[in-house]
């Protein structure tokens, strides 16, 4: 379709009301991809790169950190939109912060390698390792809550705080972009958040956890207790 199909595309997409109240995604991935085919080839390629960078489920089980950092830098350099670059930086900074907080919680020291993560603040974080909020409490107001959740072992609350922070950031950004490529990216990222939240399933998680434990135990797997309480 034409280069500027944003008006048609964005009005063809159903509104995403809320994150945690959603029970299903407002549109299936199949239908979403069909609608996204209205974009030009270049825009589609840019969107795929952004999605593959920002979503863990696009990654393989075996992830090499250096390759991931390199991929992030390459994707960022290829985008000609300051708003998208800022969004990617913010999102990757968030990951770096959460990774740093987890490492701190596990009692690990500051990383020794200068380029230990991606985003725009990894060096700053390394230099402020001693601070409880990594010196970023005002820029990322959700950090104290994350620290609290890590301390108390509240995994679900932690996940909700992080999802809500991303949702709020995307909602804030959406106010400045209504009918452009950035608006399309924001919609897809919000759709991914809803898809992720609505896909959470206790039973599937239990099966997956058990499968991972069995794989780790290898030949000792038969010694695992059986039954629903296991």
């Amino acid at each position: 379709m034409a280069e500027n199909a944003y008006y048609t595309l964005l009005t063809s997409l159903p509104h995403i009301d809320s994150l945690f109240n959603s029970r299903i995604t407002p549109i299936s991935r199949f239908q979403l991809d069909k609608r996204l085919s209205m974009l030009s080839t270049a825009d589609q390629q840019r969107l795929v790169k952004i999605e593959s960078l920002l979503h863990w489920d696009q990654l393989d089980d075996e992830v090499e950190e250096k390759a991931l950092i390199h991929q992030a830098e390459r994707t960022r350099a290829e985008l000609d939109s300051q708003a998208l670059n800022d969004l990617i930086d913010w999102r990757l900074d968030m990951r770096t912060i959460v990774a740093a907080l987890r490492r701190k919680h596990a009692g690990q020291p500051a990383p020794t390698e200068p380029k230990w993560s991606y985003g725009s603040r990894y060096e700053y974080i390394r230099n402020h390792w001693g601070s409880a909020t990594l010196g970023l409490g005002s820029a990322f107001p959700w950090i104290p809550k994350v620290v609290e959740c890590l301390r108390n072992g509240e995994c679900i609350a932690l996940e909700k705080i992080l999802l809500q922070a991303v949702w709020d950031h995307l909602s804030h950004m959406a106010m400045k972009h209504s009918h452009d490529f950035e608006a399309v990216v924001i919609y897809v990222l919000r759709w991914n958040l809803v898809a992720r939240w609505t896909a959470y399933d206790t039973e599937k998680a239990r099966v997956r956890f058990r499968s991972l434990v069995e794989t780790s135990l290898g030949e000792f797997r038969d010694q695992l207790p059986t039954g629903p309480e296991a």
Binding site: A5, Y7, T8, T11, S12, L13
Partner: peptide, 13 residues
């Protein structure tokens, strides 16, 4: 054209 494109998109939804 802009409004028409939006109208066409809305018809899909």
């Amino acid at each position: 054209s802009v409004a028409g494109q939006a109208a066409c998109g809305a018809m899909l939804d």
